[in-house]
Nucleic acid binder design. Structure first.
Lengths: 193, 193
DNA sequence: ATAAAAATAAACCAATCGGTCTAATTCCGT
DNA sequence: ACGGAATTAGACCGATTGGTTTATTTTTAT
């Protein structure tokens, strides 16, 4: 049967709440309330708020790595078109979310990166795993001559993903996807062979 | 003679403290302490913490618009080289700052953009003014055939600046400028005619 | 000189912060 | 069935949060 609560569901609630409100703006009590768990359970699972945040980052990162991998595996388009569709889909998800959050890793990294080394390291680790997955698609595109070879696959993968992170600022302060679409068009144009 | 304190010095302290620690992580008391002013003076000048933050954003934005303008006016290089030097200088400033903060507008926009509309609007207003200044340099580069005409000057200016914002995430979680230099090289390469 | 206005100063407020503690309950291995 | 361990439950803690209040001082306008 197991006990009433488990770490995964608390991590999922934490992810949803923190991504919309940020780390420092969210209190433990808010997470307890939304997850429907008492404080004792929380501190039974997690050492501290910071430890909790670290596990939220890792949980989200790993889930996303799995999703990314399967998305790219299932794509029947060419590598460059796959990348365009992929980032187009991310933009669409952000629109459906009313531009509320962007990416947890990016938001947490920017808000807490220089304040808590362990959160920075956790964010960087997860981010790097995503880049590795994306870089594999880029490399295939380079091999078939669809993507420029002026830069390495890894550099281009990071260029793509960090470029999108940059657009999240504009997205949030304008509550619009307008520039994100422009960014995608420009970036695909720049990296094509 | 005037009174003992003035808004400008409080705004400057607020800028320094918030850029390093974020908005929600900083309390009024911390700002009072660092600025050496009593609480009564703070609430005499500012309606609330949110109102204070809005004025910090505007203060920083306007100071930066002035600095940007004079930097570009005084540059004796060609437009594209001026842009490269400019972003190279920004990277250097971040290194000298031990990668502590990136850009206040970007950090605040990402942390609070979807929580407080007035802060989002203030950030967007200041950002747009910077883009206008940068776009003038881009346009000159386009006119002399140094920068691509595939996209408008304004689009390229935003592409540059938001691209740099994207690198701030990587900078903070790795405490390094390594990717920022790569990003600059790639971007200049992409936008050149 | 004087009165109104602005700024200074800090005590004070309810609410919330992250975290601790003790007790009761539930689960699991034997 | 039973004992130990894990989990649940929430009252409680000191510190801090953003903000208010009241009194005093300083500046400015008349």
């Amino acid at each position: 049967m197991g006990y009433k609560h488990n770490k995964e569901e608390i991590l999922e609630v934490g992810y949803q709440v923190i991504r919309k409100n940020g780390y420092h703006h969210v209190g433990i009590n808010q997470i307890l309330k939304e997850a429907g768990i008492p404080k004792g359970s929380f501190y039974n699972f997690f050492e501290s708020k910071e430890d909790f945040a670290k596990q939220v980052i890792t949980h989200y990162g790993q889930n996303n790595t799995i999703w990314l991998t399967s998305y790219f595996n299932e794509s029947k388009e060419t590598p460059l078109k796959t990348l365009r569709s992929f980032y187009g889909l991310l933009i669409q998800y952000n629109e459906e979310d009313d531009y509320a959050s962007g990416c947890l890793i990016n938001s947490m990294g920017n808000e807490t990166g220089r304040l808590y080394d362990d959160l920075a390291d956790a964010s960087n680790t997860q981010f790097s795993e995503w880049i590795d997955v994306i870089a594999q698609v880029v490399q295939k595109g380079q091999e078939i001559g669809e993507i420029t070879k002026k830069f390495t696959a890894s550099e281009i993968a990071e260029y793509l993903h960090l470029g999108m992170y940059g657009t999240f600022f504009k997205m949030k302060v304008t509550r619009s996807r307008a520039y994100m679409d422009t960014w995608l068009e420009m970036t695909i144009n720049f990296i094509k062979a």
